[in-house]
């Protein structure tokens, strides 16, 4: 092929767009988090200072929000693993139309954005909604269980929104796991539970880790779902950040809040890398 060298240049416009519009702002974010905005003004003072970070780590409001958000994110990851693993396994063992349909359904929450499903969830979870209505008509409850405005409601929304991020990497890993591994283990005397523990689980670990990191990061930074389903009663860390950026208009402080989330994710990513290196040697 004569066109080997020049063909690389076809990536240039795309790479330039991502580098300038997507990656460069992250670098600026670091700087902006050290700027300040004196009280009551919208003017930014670009003298480097730690006031934003001091405020985050001394104010119980933000720390509590962070703790709540971390907890919600961890539970979301756990529930996604439990729900997502069997589904991914089922998809990976299937071919043809049924598989394509299930994969399409898993992609729907991504294509529909954060709002449309949330809109449906409000009607699903509201005191007069389907969940409470069904439970009442079955005579299981007398009074509506509060779901909107509670952590449970937010959790349901987060799992619903981010489950595909667990399922898709898992499917990718399980697709490369031929059924003969399980059959070989069985023929060597492994019972189904042992087959899972000794063969399927270790080989699916990379997908499980990737999915968990993705779901964790998405939950940690999610603000639309928690805000609507929490009815403004439960502030998550990302929602606080959104509030500072969009309502309070304190952009340096919002930048610092965003940096805290970024730092948490970087720490998690680093931990995963170290763990993986440790497992390999």
């Amino acid at each position: 092929m004569t066109a080997r060298g020049p063909a690389s240049w076809l990536t240039a416009p795309g790479v330039a767009l991502i580098a300038c519009v997507f990656l460069a702002p992250f670098a600026l974010l670091v700087a902006m988090s050290f700027w300040s905005q004196p009280n009551g003004t919208l003017l930014v003072d670009p003298t480097p200072t730690l006031v934003n970070y001091e405020r985050i780590f001394s104010d119980g409001y933000y720390l509590r929000g962070l703790g709540r958000t971390l907890w919600l994110s961890l539970v979301t990851v756990a529930v996604s693993v439990v729900l997502g693993f069997p589904v991914a396994f089922w998809i990976a063992r299937r071919a043809g139309r049924l598989r394509r349909l299930t994969m399409a359904v898993m992609l729907l929450p991504i294509v529909c954005g954060a709002l449309l499903p949330t809109l449906g969830l409000v009607n699903l979870l509201s005191p007069l909604g389907i969940v409470n209505g069904t439970l009442k008509s079955l005579g299981l409850i007398d009074r509506s269980i509060p779901l909107l405005g509670t952590q449970t409601g937010i959790l349901i929304g987060l799992v619903q929104a981010f489950l595909p991020m667990m399922v898709l990497p898992l499917v990718a890993v399980l697709d490369r796991l031929p059924p003969s591994y399980e059959e070989a283990a069985k023929s060597l005397g492994a019972r189904p539970a042992q087959v899972w523990r000794r063969v399927v689980l270790p080989l699916a670990a990379p997908g499980l880790i990737a999915g968990s990191v993705l779901v964790f990061c998405a939950s940690l930074t999610s603000f639309v779902t928690p805000q609507i389903l929490g009815q403004g009663k439960i502030a998550t860390f990302a929602a606080m950040t959104w509030q500072q950026a969009s309502l309070v208009l304190d952009w340096p402080f919002a930048s610092a809040l965003a940096m805290v989330m970024l730092g948490l994710m970087a720490a998690l990513g680093g931990a995963v890398l170290v763990l993986r290196r440790g497992a390999r040697s």
Binding site: P178, S180, Y181, E183, A184, A185, K186, S187, L188, G189, A190, R191, V199, L203
Partner: peptide, 17 residues
């Protein structure tokens, strides 16, 4: 079940873990 048969099986793709 397969795991109680004591039958050795060598796979076409070997299926080594």
């Amino acid at each position: 079940p397969a795991w109680e048969r004591d039958i050795g099986l060598v796979f076409q793709n070997y299926a080594l873990f």
